[in-house]
């Protein structure tokens, strides 16, 4: 490395500029490396955003007025029930609102739950309830009442 500046001032100036350029380049490289390093460390250690159920807008209009679905309901007063009796295995439309109530982190570990991420939706059953057989039917095996508090 040259330390004497007995050459012309222009040459000395040129040498200084080259040194400055190299220094700037090395500094930029170090800065880039540091930035990438910080990003990696942050990505590995920062907590995931909490899936709080309250982040879902409550009481939105869709909760009370969901989009009309196929198979429009029939309302038949005074015991004149549905005119489409009989068991059907048709899959019902699934246009209902769903509330993603918990994440997998909230899944109980003590027993298998119905799904890994428990979501709640007001969806109809896969199979529409059917009328009981008419003749010589045995007693029902279960009874739905409100005595459970529902």
């Amino acid at each position: 490395m040259r330390d004497s500046y007995e050459d012309s001032p222009a040459e000395a100036r040129e040498l200084g500029l080259r040194r400055l350029s190299r220094l700037t380049w090395r500094t930029a490289q170090l800065g880039t490396l540091a930035t990438v390093g910080f990003a990696i460390v942050f990505a590995r250690t920062a907590p995931a955003p909490a899936a709080n159920v309250q982040t879902v807008p409550p009481g939105s209009p869709a909760a009370t007025t969901p989009a009309p679905a196929a198979g429009q309901a029939s309302a038949k007063p005074q015991g004149l029930a549905s005119t489409r009796p009989g068991p059907r295995a048709a899959t019902r439309p699934s246009s209902q609102r769903t509330v993603q109530a918990t994440t997998a982190a909230a899944k109980p570990s003590s027993a298998p739950a119905p799904s890994p991420a428990v979501s709640h939706t007001l969806a109809p059953p896969a199979t529409t309830p059917a009328p009981a057989p008419k003749a010589s039917s045995p007693a029902p095996t279960a009874t739905s009442t409100s005595h459970g508090g529902g």
């Binding site: 198979g71 309901a73 029939s74 007063p77 015991g79 029930a81 549905s82 009796p85 529409t128």
Partner: peptide, 15 residues
């Protein structure tokens, strides 16, 4: 005692 059924709730059976 009046009954209203909705969305293909089955008709009352004969029993």
């Amino acid at each position: 005692g009046g009954v209203v059924t909705v969305a293909d709730w089955p008709a009352p059976g004969g029993q």
